[in-house]
Design a protein around this nucleic acid. Structure first.
Length: 835
RNA sequence: GGGCGGUUAGCUCAGUUGGUUAGAGCGCCUGCCUUACAAGCAGGAGGUCGCAGGUUCGAGUCCUGCACUGCCCA
């Protein structure tokens, strides 16, 4: 980024020098590093700010030097002249991972090389990079290729350079099936040719320099840019009659991931980590399950890569980064040391530090232990290593995760709590932009979270991300989802307004006050705060809260809706707990959303309204107690997703006398199975069904919303009793005045609805839309009949009865009975309509 | 070329070890400013789960092939 700024000023890093450049990078870091921290704070991340560190801190540098020196001493770091991916723009080597491959339309040229001492005989080779022929040192053919058998051990004359080069056999490089079966070999400028060159002891002739210009070995082409040279070479080949043909070809081009410049494979002296020994252990720990990936299919990707790994080029010809702790003397001696030597250990002469810096991932790879104080034996290291969980994106699985595993397993070998850097790796999807493009600093398509936060609020943004974070999938950032979760935050706020409005009234009349709620909850905070303390078991931290209180305190389940909401709360707490344990954040978000909006607000608040104003003081007090205690529990459930709004409201619920400094510090709700009540849930479902049915009929009959109507209900005694007990609720929520129970079935009646448990009819004089009703009923009948056929078929299938689990059979029987009733009722209704 | 994933409602996507009626948000249609909330409430329409086979009592879910598509690595 700093280089880019310099480019705008018309400069490059060499113009200003190493020192000034480094200073500018620090400036940049000072400025933008702060921006990132600000973003984290705005996002409400919960981090231990006291342990903040920066890659270039002295602490980190010490760890890096220690790691480098140890690996060097163990023979796992070596220096050598190898072919590397070279970016002629950055003027540095880059690792394999930093090269992006792109398929580009290009050409392939066929060139003939005359055979020495053989008139009119040629070998035709094909290349996509004719300029590299200037550095050719051989032509390779397959030893089994009959076409060239007679030419083994002969030479060809390299056109333009007039240099005799040998014809060699190399079965790895030369594939008889491909093209002419003969290939030119340029050990200095192609990785495969480089290997072949080593196998065959070929000279390495470099013809391209560090900034991709032809050098003195390129003879007349010296000084030309590589692409200009390509044109010139082609022209000269053409003129000399060496160019046989040209074909269109899709060329895989390697480009620099930083600047998109085409990578030039180039020989240079670099530092490497011998990776195989480290990779073996890193594979083993994952195989043994010491480290688990979520989602687990990344394990396969990981193995795939680790088993085909190459030595890691760790040196960079850059100026920003950890400098390689090696010192060179004019006498040729090289010293690798933790402390800078003052003079050469061999000749006593002055020494100079190696100019290269380390690949940034070298220091990042140490992070799990270095951030905790390694190489010192610190209390932090003892307490927190191995870490429980690493959360990251799959795009740096190899860059970072794999290297952390390799390096930490190596340096922490023998650690009493285990050598692995972490137990679990949660790999989240990437947040992509609207076009599903990966966001990146260099591409400049980054959506600034602050902007979205300013538009929708942090809570909405966090909830969106949680709700869309299904394991393994990317998130195409969608503002419409964020919008709906902003509405959710608003819903929570409005629910709170309703509560506090009523609480104020109750407080004024001396009926009830938040102080009573606080008193009933005191025990909540006394036990188990949400477990910050980590264990070496690697268990998620919220497990720690299990010793704490369960369910809802201070709740008096007096009515059906009380028993129902209490049961639902506990079930939801249970579901969220399970979802979070499995890193299924989207499921947890979904469940809590539906609970709060679809159950607490839509039903419980509506049902409890009359009780808040009841004449009976005890009844009123209970209602407030229940209302607030569920709300408080819901806030705790919601707080990890929406920390800001829940924090604010939570303190308000305790009238600013909260039992802890923050909602984040109290126990996360735990389910209490004793507070679950399946009967209440079933009964409530029937009531909801009834209310919805009536609303439904009213909508169809287009009854004026304000007009209350009487209804008739036909149902079995127990259902009748249930409805009777909750008569008020039905009347209010279904906009009904007067409920009559009748003994005759209402299935055939107009303006009626039937379920398996009841028939309900709205008494209304207006004619129903017969055609529409018939349409609806026959559609339903089709569906029901299909279901009945399926169920009957299954239940008469001996295989099913023999093999299916009992509860499934039981359930199906029950359902079949219901469907039979419904088919009957629907048929009756249709008959009545004259169908 | 090798590896991994995706294909479910108009759109964006859920749907864990196969099990009763496949869900959500947005959008759409109808009606409501009902004193918490119009960023809302009530009701509704909309799906042969990519195609073709197979395993099974039972397949959106498992297997094989195909089509289209995305990503990673060479």
């Amino acid at each position: 980024m700093v280089e880019r700024q310099l480019a705008v000023e018309g400069k490059n890093r060499r113009d200003i020098g190493r020192e000034a450049f480094t200073a500018r990078v620090w400036d940049w870091k000072q400025h933008y590093g702060g921006v990132i921290l600000q973003q984290m704070k705005r996002l409400g991340t919960s981090v231990d700010w006291s342990r903040e560190y920066f890659t270039m801190d002295e602490r980190m540098s010490r760890a890096v030097r220690e790691a480098f020196v140890r690996l060097y001493e163990e023979g796992l770091i070596y220096r050598g002249k190898y072919i590397v991916n070279w970016c002629p723009r950055c003027i540095t080597a880059v690792s394999d991972l930093e090269v992006v491959h792109e398929e580009t339309r290009g050409k392939i040229w066929e060139i003939r090389y005359p055979v020495v001492d053989s008139k009119d005989e040629y070998i035709v080779v094909a290349t996509t990079r004719p300029e590299t022929m200037l550095g050719d040192t051989a032509v390779a053919v397959n030893s089994a290729d009959e076409r060239y058998r007679h030419l083994h051990r002969k030479h060809v004359l390299l056109p333009l350079m007039n240099r005799a080069i040998p014809i060699i056999t190399d079965d790895i490089l030369a594939n008889p099936e491909f093209g002419t079966g003969a290939v030119k070999v340029t050990p200095s400028h192609d990785p495969n040719d480089f290997e072949a060159g080593l196998r065959n002891n070929l000279p390495q002739i470099e013809v391209i320099n560090e900034i991709a210009q032809m050098n003195e070995n390129a003879g007349p082409y010296k000084g030309l840019d590589r692409f200009e040279a390509r044109q010139k070479v082609l022209e000269d080949l053409e003129r000399g009659g060496f160019l046989v043909g040209t074909k269109e070809y899709v060329v895989p081009l390697g480009k620099c991931s930083r600047c998109r410049t085409i990578i030039e494979p180039r020989l240079s002296t670099q530092w490497f980590v011998k990776i195989k020994p480290l990779a073996e252990r890193a594979i083993e720990v994952v195989e043994k399950g010491d480290i688990k990936f979520v989602p687990e299919n990344y394990t396969k990707t990981y193995f795939e890569w680790m088993r085909n790994i190459y030595d890691w080029c760790i040196s960079r010809q850059l100026w920003w980064g950890h400098r390689i702790p090696a010192w060179h003397c004019k006498c040729g001696e090289m010293m690798v040391a933790r402390q800078a030597p003052t003079k050469c250990t061999k000749c006593g002469g002055p020494v100079e530090q190696d100019n290269d810096v380390l690949d940034t991932w070298f220091s990042s790879g140490l992070l799990p232990c270095s951030a905790l104080g390694w190489p010192d034996d610190t209390p932090d290291l003892d307490a927190f290593y191995p870490n429980t969980l690493l959360i990251t994106g799959f795009d740096i699985l190899f860059f970072w995760v794999a290297r952390m595993i390799m390096m930490n397993c190596h340096f922490m070998r023998g650690n009493q709590h285990g050598d692995v850097p972490f137990r679990n790796v949660y790999i989240h999807g990437l947040i992509r932009d609207a076009e599903r493009q990966k966001m990146s600093k260099t591409k400049g398509n980054v959506v600034d979270p602050i902007e979205i936060i300013e538009k929708y609020g942090t809570d909405a943004v966090r909830f969106t991300l949680a709700a869309m974070a299904m394991p393994g999938g990317d998130i195409a950032f969608s503002e419409s989802r964020t919008e709906s979760y902003r509405a959710f935050a608003n819903k929570i706020w409005n629910a709170a307004r309703f509560l506090f409005m009523n609480v104020d009234k109750a407080q004024e009349s001396g009926l009830w006050s938040l102080a009573e709620f606080k008193a009933s909850q005191d025990s909540i905070s006394s036990k188990g705060t949400a477990g910050i303390k980590e264990t070496h078991s690697g268990a998620p931290s919220f497990r720690e809260a299990e010793g704490g209180p369960k369910g809802i305190r201070g709740f008096k389940a007096e009515t059906l809706e009380d028993r129902w909401i209490l049961s639902r709360f506990n079930r939801v707490a249970q579901e969220i707990h399970e979802a979070l344990e499995a890193y299924r954040f989207h499921e947890a978000a979904h469940v809590v959303y539906h609970f709060f909006w679809g159950e607490y607000c839509d039903w419980y608040l509506e049902l409890i309204k009359p009780r808040l104003a009841a004449d009976d003081r005890d009844q009123g007090r209970t209602a407030y107690e229940n209302l607030i205690s569920i709300f408080e529990g819901a806030l705790r459930l919601l707080s990890p997703f929406m920390p800001f709004i829940t924090e604010e409201l939570w303190h308000a619920v305790y009238d600013d006398q909260a039992p802890a400094k923050s909602i984040a510090l109290v126990a996360y709700p735990l389910a209490d199975s004793a507070q679950m009540n399946p009967d209440a849930e079933t009964e409530m479902a029937i009531l909801q069904d009834l209310i919805v049915s009536v609303r439904n009929i009213r909508a169809e009959l287009k009854v004026e919303p304000k007009q209350k109507l009487a209804i008739e209900i036909h149902a079995a005694d127990d259902i009748r009793a249930l409805i009777d007990r909750n008569r008020g609720a039905v009347e209010r929520l279904a906009n009904v005045e007067g409920i009559t129970f009748v003994d005759r079935s209402l299935a055939k009646a107009a303006g009626a609805r039937s379920t398996a448990r009841f028939d309900v009819r709205v008494i209304y004089e207006r004619k129903i839309d017969v055609a529409a009703e018939r349409d609806r009923l026959s559609k339903e009948l089709t569906k029901l009949t299909q279901e009945l056929t399926r169920a009957t078929g299954q239940l008469s299938n001996e295989g099913f009865l023999a093999k299916a689990p009992a509860n499934v059979i039981e359930g199906l029987k029950k359902r079949k009975a219901e469907v039979e009733v419904l088919v009957q009722k629907t048929n009756d209704a249709l008959c009545e309509l004259g169908a």
